[in-house]
Write a protein that binds this DNA or RNA. Structure first.
Lengths: 207, 207
DNA sequence: CGCAGTTTTGTCATTATTGTCGAAACAGAT
DNA sequence: ATCTGTTTCGACAATAATGACAAAACTGCG
């Protein structure tokens, strides 16, 4: 849909667009920057801009894939026999992120996107998160996805419940008054534990 | 974002646009129908069209809110002391829907939207579903949302897990070979039961 | 190097979407 | 019916986004 990025050239173009956009966005705000300006700054045509990014706002999510990839790898690196909740805990607490950059981008998003779009993105993140967990779980059963349907159901539902715990905790945190990171960690921990407790009896007791 | 719909007049306009769009879409396909045509058919200006619908594609989701509202009401109508899983089962199996219309719209969506957009919509549905369940659960604890944070966390996570079960079942069903409605019902039943079993011990054992 | 095939861009044209501002239609009170 | 404040609509202009096709850059190979 919007990602040539195969060759070195296209990668350069992409980078140029990314940089140009960030500069403009920071200097004059997202809405006051036209796609044409960005393209011009990067020295390419408008059409080319849209070949690299689905939309102007898409630039605000340009770094997301890298983070997802990191998480997926972190999960995959965990030993096969570790209980899934433990793997997830380890991965999410080890997640490295550039506070500066994240804050900056978050501000731009808040400025240019309406709340529903941001919520939509969070749902996307949760969905990808669940998929990563499912991928890790599936490794235990049938690496190729050819598992019996009951097993597939268990993997999918379990993974989604884990995601439900983490993102549910985040939701409660955002709506609550206490906004410290410690509080968030506490909520995550608590939510994951509740899932874990439920897992001893449920259909997915094996994970 | 795009919904005057307060007065009778705007409701008429909205309906006119909806009808006009459906006719065109069915006759010549979504992509071959321009927003201008729809507006013209409905006898309003292009700008007015965009006052009622956020986008041309938005028309393909125009009926969604009604369904959500139905579900929310169905859940609310259930007795307070019924276990949540039971309420959800009852509600989803009683859901009334016009096979004709649903099939028709689904075809149009498949034609005009790319898969990622459809997935995005499904996520939206799941999210709203979870929220409806959470609403029903919250009634048991603190009607005003002023419950202690632990309780809020339990409600949120539980609701999301229920949604995870239902939509996880749907995902497995869609990816599987058996596509009968019976199979879907079976998967939903199974997924909900697994959650139910887990609930006897987890933090949300009370629901 | 020079050629044939593939990928990436550019250009042009068309449609989609949004901001702004003023006119028309509407609801309620006099 | 007339006045008045509000909602909805139309007209116009500026961006945003996409389709179609040709030119330019890049690739591997003889």
């Amino acid at each position: 849909m919007a990602k040539p990025a195969q060759t070195a050239r296209s990668e350069r173009t992409r980078e140029a667009l990314r940089r140009a956009a960030l500069v403009r966005f920071l200097a004059q705000g997202v809405e006051n920057t036209s796609a044409e300006q960005i393209a011009a700054d990067a020295g390419v045509s408008l059409r080319t801009f849209y070949r690299h990014f689905a939309s102007k706002h898409d630039l605000l999510f340009a770094d997301y894939d890298a983070g997802l990839h990191w998480f997926r790898s972190a999960l995959a690196a965990r030993p096969d026999d570790e209980p899934i909740i433990g793997s997830v805990r380890a991965a999410i607490f080890a997640f490295p992120y550039d506070v500066e950059a994240v804050t900056q981008i978050a501000a731009l998003r808040a400025e240019a996107l309406d709340p529903s779009q941001i919520v939509q993105h969070i749902r996307q993140v949760e969905s990808d998160f669940a998929e990563a967990v499912a991928e890790r779980l599936a490794r235990l059963t049938a690496p190729d996805g050819g598992a019996p349907i009951g097993e597939r159901l268990a993997v999918t539902v379990t993974a989604r419940c884990v995601a439900a715990a983490v993102f549910g905790a985040m939701e409660v945190w955002m709506l609550g008054e206490e906004r410290s990171l410690a509080e968030l960690a506490q909520l995550c921990h608590s939510a994951l534990s509740s899932i874990e407790a439920g897992m001893v009896d449920g259909m997915f007791r094996h994970y």
